[in-house]
Design a protein around this nucleic acid. Structure first.
Lengths: 244, 244
DNA sequence: ACAAAAGTGTTACACGTACACCCATGG
DNA sequence: CCATGGGTGTACGTGTAACACTTTTGT
């Protein structure tokens, strides 16, 4: 048998929604599209799935092309397939979201891809349905981070509790009580206190912590309760159901 | 511009993992594949995405073809794209999971598609990577049902609390305390008690309830806690992250 | 000495869990 | 009358949320 007959073939792409945290704000890594159509417009980093490659592999390859990074946290988000989403030719996109330690991406910004970090509230106009992808990724991140210890992926090896709290506050655009936050966090047993302090943001200095990698790997799926009243903070979750 | 050059085109399919509940067990609707390759083997219901159609629309069309049903709860599960998953030709599959009221599917079973319901623990050998899809759907259903009022989709309009509890017990393969379960359930305010009783499974009879559709629609995203200690029951969740 | 951020403890309440008995009915 | 499944209430413990003061140190 040589192939299925009478069916349309189409292009498959992978697009990466790349989140980073600079110690103050959550940011998104965008590129300026280098080819037509829409050359020069802002876009997610993406590319076509190649023969011999799964979409997962494509996504990792694409992320590596832009950031030089391997072993990054990445998760399939959703597949976007409305027929005219790409005006040139029918292209279905499998979107992934990735969490990277922004410090590890000290690449030559504005190099080949003219990449830039954007504050989540200052996303420029994006091509095609990329804005919708970003929006879904943002919600998914909110959803998952409320339940699983995910956001460590955005932090450097050594980090402080106030840093982590700012990260959570950024994700949910709210503020938390530092005493309760700190207690819950430490009660997970995932953190190992260091002797060294980070003096960069206060006179007193905040203790550095590192992740207990063993427990992190084992407990990743367990439920946490960092976020008080997630009901009020979370709206849509992952793939919203459809009823056609 | 006439199309992107130098890229591989491939087939896109949608496959449906269809769950039903017969009042006792959770079941999966499978068909016997009617064309080569693997004609006659058990398979998920699926089909190719047509021109002018999104994958979501395909999935709903496919579900309608088999069951005659519209307006069914359906959610995109994951996209499967390893190059050789279909031996005939590269085909990427967007998998969906659907929850249907098994009573509404009184179609002519063993008709055109030779469809049959299978108990989740007695799934036959399936073609390609369909077993993996089913497994992921099962886990996703467990995950989501622990957090959101999802399983009502599997029940008829009128149902009893013991029925619902058996459903949850089937999903998690465990037993619950009926007093606590009932209390939590009713405290959501989602259920409206009827005067009528279901006498089919006990002498005393169990009261029928119906869903408060208004509140159901409004509260679908809110978090519930039907499941005690979800940590122990849930393992992998939705799309597991990859680190290549 | 003072400003700015880090760190820590207690209390009240809500929620979750465990648990046992009575009820209704058909046979 | 009795067996079967349905329905209900309470007590206890845990976990969560609210809340204020002390510590450190650079200027």
């Amino acid at each position: 048998m040589r192939g299925y007959s009478g069916q349309q073939r189409l292009l498959l792409a992978a697009d990466c929604i790349i989140f980073g945290f600079d110690g103050r704000d959550i940011k998104l890594l965008l590129i300026q599209r280098g080819f037509e159509p829409a050359r020069g417009k802002w876009s997610l980093m993406g590319g076509f799935v190649q023969p011999g490659e799964s979409a997962d592999e494509s996504a990792h390859r694409i992320l590596r092309q832009l950031t030089g990074l391997d072993g990054v946290y990445m998760e399939q988000l959703h597949t976007f397939s409305v027929p005219d989403r790409d005006p040139v030719e029918r292209t279905v996109s499998v979107a992934y979201f990735a969490l990277i330690d922004i410090n590890k991406y000290q690449q030559q910004l504005s190099d080949e891809y003219h990449a830039e970090w954007f504050h989540l509230k200052k996303i420029p106009e994006l091509i095609f349905d990329h804005r919708q992808m970003v929006e879904m990724a943002r919600k998914r991140l909110q959803y998952k981070a409320a339940l699983h210890p995910l956001l460590f992926e955005l932090l450097p090896e050594k980090f402080t509790i106030p840093q982590l709290m700012h990260l959570y506050e950024g994700i949910y655009d709210t503020t938390f009580d530092k005493r309760n936050f700190s207690r819950k966090l430490l009660s997970t047993g995932l953190l190992i206190k260091q002797d060294e302090k980070d003096k960069s943001s206060s006179r007193k200095g905040a203790y550095y912590y590192i992740l207990d990698q063993q427990r992190y790997a084992r407990n990743f799926q367990s439920f946490l309760h960092f976020i008080p009243n997630p009901d009020h903070l979370l709206r849509d979750d992952t793939g919203a159901p459809s009823r056609l």
